[in-house]
C-alpha cells in the first residue's frame, strides 16, 4: 500500500447528502458550482432541520443543475421561474425549508421580477445565486452581471450595458439577509447559507464563481485556480453593505477590490399568508387587519 492510497477514503462523509448515482457531473474543470453545492449540503446538515424537510429548487443553466445533485426533494424547473415554484412549495408546506440555487442570468434577467417580489414579500426562502458573470451552459453569452467591458460571445467588443449589483438589488427589494462570498471562501459561504436557512424571511447569498471554459477564457482570467487567486488577492471583507459603486466588480482594473461579506442581517416580519383568523367576526370581510410596519 502506497502512502497515497492510504488516504483515499472509500466514502465521503457528504455522500448521503448527494445523488452520487448521478456522478460524474456535467460541470467543467475549475467551475465553482460544485463548491457551492458542497457548501449548501454542509449548511443543510448543520441546520438542525431534518433532511426530509429540505427542498431544493433550481431554474435553468449550469447552476440550475444543482437541484439534480442534492439528495433531497429537488425540482429542476423552467428558466427564470425557480422562485415562484419554490414559493408555492413554501406556502403550502411552511414547515419545509426551501432553497433556490440558480444562476445570475436565471434569477436576475429572465427571473428578475420574481426575485424582487419574493424579497419584497420577505418570503421564507433562501436564494443562492451562483454568479459566474455569463450564460455558461449556452457558450458564454453576456448576462445581467457581466462587468462592463468584459468579452463574451454576444459582446465581442466588450459588454456595453451596466451590470446588476445583486446585493444592492436584494437589499433594496427588502431581503432580511444579504451576503456575497466567492467559492474561495468555503467556510464563510457555508456559514452564510446556514444563516439563510435558519433565518425567517428572504435570504440572499451571492456566490462568485469562476467559469473558466467560457467567461474566464474570453477574458484572460486563466483557469479556475487563477481566478481563485484573483479572489484571494482582491477580495475585501466588509461588515456593512458598501455603496452602490463599491459593490461593482471589475476584472480589468487590478487595483479595484471585490467587496464580500455578510452585508445585511435584519429582523423583518417574514411572509405569512392570510390566515383563517383574519376573517373572525368580520361577516363582510372588509375590516382591516393590522399589519405591523418596519423592523421589529
Amino acid at each position: 500500500m502506497t502512502a497515497t492510497s492510504a488516504v483515499i477514503a472509500r466514502d465521503h462523509p457528504n455522500d448521503p447528502l448527494l445523488r452520487s448515482d448521478r456522478f460524474p457531473h456535467i460541470l467543467c474543470p475549475g467551475c465553482g458550482i460544485g463548491t457551492v453545492i458542497h457548501c449548501y449540503v454542509e449548511a443543510m446538515a448543520a441546520s438542525g432541520v431534518p433532511l426530509d424537510n429540505h427542498v431544493c429548487v433550481s431554474g435553468i443553466g449550469c447552476s440550475g443543475r444543482a437541484a439534480g445533485y442534492v439528495n433531497v426533494d429537488s425540482y429542476h424547473t423552467a428558466h427564470g421561474r425557480a422562485i415562484p415554484f419554490a414559493l408555492g412549495i413554501a406556502i403550502h408546506k411552511p414547515e419545509l425549508r426551501v432553497t433556490v440555487i440558480s444562476g445570475d442570468g436565471d434569477l436576475t434577467a429572465i427571473g428578475g421580477n420574481h426575485f424582487i417580489h419574493a424579497a419584497r414579500r420577505n418570503m421564507n426562502l433562501t436564494v443562492v445565486c451562483i454568479n459566474n458573470f455569463n450564460y455558461g451552459m449556452t457558450g458564454g453569452q453576456a448576462g445581467p452581471t457581466s462587468p462592463r467591458g468584459s468579452i463574451t460571445s454576444t459582446a465581442p467588443k466588450g459588454v456595453h450595458d451596466r451590470p446588476f449589483n445583486l446585493p444592492d438589488l436584494a437589499r433594496a427589494a427588502g431581503a432580511s439577509f444579504v451576503a456575497r462570498w466567492t467559492i474561495l471562501h468555503v467556510r464563510q459561504l457555508r456559514d452564510a447559507i446556514l444563516r439563510g436557512l435558519q433565518k425567517p424571511g428572504f435570504s440572499f447569498i451571492e456566490a462568485l464563481s469562476p467559469c473558466p471554459t467560457n467567461f474566464g477564457r474570453a477574458n484572460d482570467l486563466g483557469d479556475g485556480m487563477a481566478e481563485m487567486e484573483v479572489y484571494r488577492q482582491r477580495c475585501r471583507i466588509v461588515q456593512e453593505l458598501p455603496g452602490f459603486d463599491e459593490l461593482d466588480i471589475d476584472f480589468v482594473d487590478e487595483e479595484r477590490p471585490i467587496a464580500v461579506g455578510n452585508f445585511v442581517d435584519i429582523d423583518r416580519h417574514p411572509y405569512q399568508p392570510v390566515g383563517a383568523d383574519a376573517f373572525d367576526n368580520v361577516p363582510n370581510g372588509t375590516q382591516r387587519v393590522h399589519h405591523p410596519v418596519g423592523e421589529e
Binding site: Y75, F85, G88, N113
Partner: peptide
C-alpha cells in the same frame, strides 16, 4: 408567469 409556477410548486 409567477402565478402558474406557484401553483405547480404547490402541486408538487
Amino acid at each position: 408567469l409567477g402565478s402558474i409556477m406557484s401553483i405547480l410548486g404547490a402541486s408538487a
